[in-house]
């Protein structure tokens, strides 16, 4: 369970303070999935980074599994906006990076995950040699390698072509159902939010505040995309966002 209460985040020194997040609160049961959607620059990444322990909030309470968040957690994986791969490391090294940084490599490694994501034969390539979709999958492999119980994702599929986007959305859905991690993801894609988010939180313009919460209990199957309910929610969500 993740609990966020009265979260406030701002950047810069006094005088030129940029307020990014203002009084945001929500909670997610473990194993559930939550989408954060909002206009660009509204503070989505800031909220995610606060949950990941990368950004210290000015005010508010954050807890994961009943423990206060203060710093990085070993059971939480973060996938960054552009996969966050290091260009000087090969696929293999990138995928094992999180394990290595927490001294779990080489006792544990990402071989099985790379195999599962169809990346095994590319293990010695550098990110510059991969397509965008493959890079994202390497980022996913890195996150999965630590067997996280919380998966935080910052626009994991932004700027991919539509087909690849859909394919990786399907992958996320299967992985989520298979592995049962709690998923919090940021997106600016309405259909993605409806396809992957059990609950969708719509944020306002900066500083981010919660504008609406849309429940989406029927998600969870690959063919949800073709259903009437899916389209109804997409339309509803679009209307909420344009308000």
């Amino acid at each position: 369970m993740i609990e966020v209460e009265g979260l406030k985040i701002s950047y810069g020194a006094a005088g030129r303070l940029i307020e990014a997040v203002n009084e945001v609160g929500f909670s997610i049961d473990s194993g559930d999935s939550l989408a954060l959607i909002g206009p660009s620059g509204c503070g989505k990444t800031s909220i995610l980074f606060a949950i990941a322990g990368l950004v210290k909030p000015d005010a508010g309470n954050l807890s994961i599994a009943g423990e206060r968040v203060d710093g990085i957690r070993r059971d939480a994986a973060l996938i960054l906006q552009n996969a966050g791969l290091l260009p000087w490391k090969t696929v293999w090294e990138n995928a094992n990076m999180s394990l290595r940084l927490s001294h779990r490599y080489p006792a544990e490694n990402a071989a099985a995950v790379l195999e599962e994501l169809g990346l095994a034969e590319f293990r010695d390539r550098f990110p510059a040699e991969l397509s965008e979709g493959m890079k994202r999958r390497v980022g996913i492999a890195r996150a999965l390698s630590i067997s996280p119980s919380v998966m935080l994702m910052d626009e994991p599929l932004a700027s991919l072509d539509a087909i690849t986007q859909e394919r990786i959305q399907n992958l996320f859905l299967e992985l989520w159902k298979q592995r049962g991690f709690t998923m919090v993801f940021v997106t600016h894609d309405i259909e993605e939010a409806v396809f992957l988010g059990q609950r969708i939180i719509v944020l306002s313009k900066r500083p981010a505040q919660i504008k609406a919460v849309v429940e989406n209990p029927q998600m969870g199957e690959l063919d949800y995309r073709e259903s009437k309910e899916f389209h109804r929610l997409v339309i509803e969500l679009r209307a909420v966002m344009q308000r």
């Binding site: 980074f49 990941a52 990368l54 990085i72 070993r74 994986a77 973060l78 960054l80 906006q81 552009n82 966050g84 791969l85 290091l86 000087w88 490391k89 990076m97 999180s98 940084l101 927490s102 630590i146």
Partner: peptide, 27 residues
């Protein structure tokens, strides 16, 4: 910042930041 966040989010300590990000990026 992205490369730094990438290792910081996995709990890198200061030495690891130099070893895996700053040194290779500066070589």
């Amino acid at each position: 910042e992205e490369h730094l966040a990438s290792v910081l989010s996995a709990g890198a300590n200061r030495f690891q930041i130099y070893r895996h990000v700053i040194l290779p990026a500066s070589l």
